[in-house]
């Protein structure tokens, strides 16, 4: 019994310490961000987190939009209001699916890579050698990855939404024959720029910060062995996904809830 209590105490303290360490780590990394805009390190990272994620984002966006079009049509056509399909697709994508699915894919595609990369740097003592040379790894390794992730996710989410809407239009208008004028005009009258589009962008910025933070910290804080790196990579994907889905509920309640 006492051992069990002891275990709870140790776990709590351990979690708390990790949380504090990660907050200090984020603050330390973010401190270098203003000096890094347009530096080579940053552009290189934006390439590997953003540009290389484009393909998966575009392909999934297209298919999700097409599925929304198909499902929305079969439901709405029963009520004779299949013109509302444009509004349905645009609102679901811009408010929810764009930021959330992009963040989940980003955690799997770019987040896991970040963790593994930094974890391996730690395991092969590259981070320590940087420190030995008098270069702060937070500045050289961490800060460029943080800012690249912060920036890449909102951009990817907007591309996701646009491609999804285009996919939905392809299925709804070109394939199922919804009248195109009604499709766009319904969409434009239902979607508000600041209420829907900007709130979606704010969501994706929050998700970008959280996903990148978790990924980079998990790599930096991993146990420097093969098992440690693999465990950290798994944790990155699990924690990021949970954080994104949980935060999404909170953000949605704050932004769109009427209370």
């Amino acid at each position: 019994m006492s051992l069990w209590l002891q275990q709870i105490g140790r776990q709590t303290l351990h979690r708390l310490a990790t949380l504090g360490r990660s907050a200090l780590f984020l603050a330390g990394g973010a401190l270098f961000i203003p000096r890094l805009i347009f530096s080579r390190l940053f552009i290189q990272q934006l390439f590997s987190t953003g540009v290389l994620s484009l393909l998966i984002i575009i392909v999934s966006g297209l298919f999700i939009g097409m599925v929304l079009g198909l499902q929305g049509y079969t439901i709405l056509v029963d009520y004779g209001s299949e013109q509302a399909i444009g509004q349905m697709i645009a609102l679901t994508l811009v408010r929810e699916l764009g930021p959330v699915v992009t963040a989940l894919l980003f955690a799997g595609r770019a987040g896991s890579a970040l963790t593994a990369e930094i974890g391996l740097m730690k395991a092969t003592e590259q981070l320590s050698s940087l420190e030995m040379m008098g270069v702060d790894p937070l500045r050289q390794v961490i800060a460029p990855r943080l800012i690249a992730g912060f920036l890449a996710l909102p951009l990817l989410a907007m591309i996701f939404s646009i491609v999804g809407i285009w996919g939905g239009k392809m299925v709804g208008v070109d394939w199922l024959g919804v009248y195109e004028g009604a499709f766009w005009s319904n969409m434009q009258s239902a979607v508000d720029f600041s209420d829907d589009v900007l709130n979606g962008v704010i969501k994706s910025i929050v998700f970008g910060v959280v996903c990148t933070w978790i990924a980079v910290f998990q790599g930096y804080d991993c146990v420097p062995t093969s098992e440690g790196i693999s465990a950290s990579t798994t944790r990155t994907v699990v924690y990021s996904s949970l954080a994104v889905l949980g935060l999404d509920f909170v953000l949605t309640a704050v932004m769109f809830g009427e209370f």
């Binding site: 934006l46 953003g50 540009v51 951009l155 591309i159 434009q188 589009v197």
Partner: peptide, 23 residues
């Protein structure tokens, strides 16, 4: 590639603003 990516993202925002929300 990075320049193209950033432009693509900003272009997407413009499309969302003009075409989708009718701003």
């Amino acid at each position: 590639a990075v320049g193209g990516f950033v432009l693509l993202g900003i272009g997407a925002l413009f499309l969302l603003a003009l075409e989708v929300s009718g701003l």
